[in-house]
């Protein structure tokens, strides 16, 4: 399942870092953090999507405290 969220991210570099970290999570097929459009796209396993989403947000926050996702 692929879903797009509005997110807040401060710089292009931060976005790339968060993206990389989220991609490494288990069950994540693909992730994108777009700084210019401020969009977070998560493509993850259907069954555990919510779970993975929460994990992804947590990981993102750990790397970039300014990262937040509007659900």
């Amino acid at each position: 399942m692929k879903k797009k969220f509005k997110c807040e991210i401060d710089c292009a570099n931060c976005a790339a870092k968060v993206e990389e970290a989220v991609k490494k999570l288990e069950g994540v097929n693909d992730a994108k953090v777009n700084f210019l459009t401020q969009k977070f796209t998560l493509d993850a396993d259907d069954g555990r999507f919510e779970d993975i989403l929460q994990q992804a947000i947590a990981v993102g926050k750990k790397i970039e405290p300014d990262f937040s996702v509007a659900l």
Partner: peptide, 16 residues
Amino acid sequence: LRKAFLGMRNRQPFDE
């Protein structure tokens, strides 16, 4: 400063 420390903790230290 916080970002710099976070970067070091996450082993991605080289940023602005």
